[in-house]
Simulated assay, not measured.
Amino acid sequence: MSISLSQWSRGALAVAVSAGWAVSAQAELPAQQQEQAPGWFRMMVGEYEVTALYDGHTAIDTSLLKGMEQEEILRHLDALFIDAESGMQTAVNAFLIHTGENLVLVDAGSAACFGPSLGQVESNLRASGYSPEDVDTVLMTHLHPDHVCGLANEEGEAVYPNAELRASQADADFWLDEERAAAAPEANQPFFTMAQDAVAPYQEADRFNPFTAGDEVLMGIVAQDTHGHTAGHSSFMLNSDDDAMLVWGDVVHSYGVQFADPTVAIEFDSDPEQAIRTRESVLESAVEDKHWIAGAHMPFPGIGHIVEDEEGYRWLPIEFGPVAVDE
Rank of each mutant, 00 (worst) to 15 (best):
L77S: 06
N209H: 14
V222M: 13
E101L: 04
W248E: 10
A52H: 03
G302L: 03
T62I: 15
S128C: 08
D215V: 09
V92E: 03
A94N: 01
R42Q: 12
Y130W: 15
N162C: 10
A275I: 07
K66V: 15
S24P: 03
Y54E: 05
S18E: 10
C113R: 08
A79G: 15
N124I: 03
H297F: 09
Q89P: 13
G220Q: 07
V45R: 02
A79F: 11
G39S: 12
C149G: 06
E178M: 02
V104T: 09
M1Q: 15
V17K: 10
I306T: 10
R126A: 06
P30R: 06
E288A: 14
F320H: 15
T212D: 12
E216F: 11
V282H: 05
R180M: 13
F81A: 12
P317R: 09
L53V: 03
G228N: 00
S24F: 14
L118V: 13
P190I: 11
I293Q: 15
D107T: 03
A94L: 05
G156F: 00
P301C: 08
P38G: 05
G214V: 05
V148P: 01
V252H: 01
L53H: 02
A112D: 11
S168C: 07
E310I: 04
E186I: 13
P116G: 09
G295L: 06
S6P: 02
R180K: 15
I303D: 05
A170E: 07
G119H: 04
A182I: 00
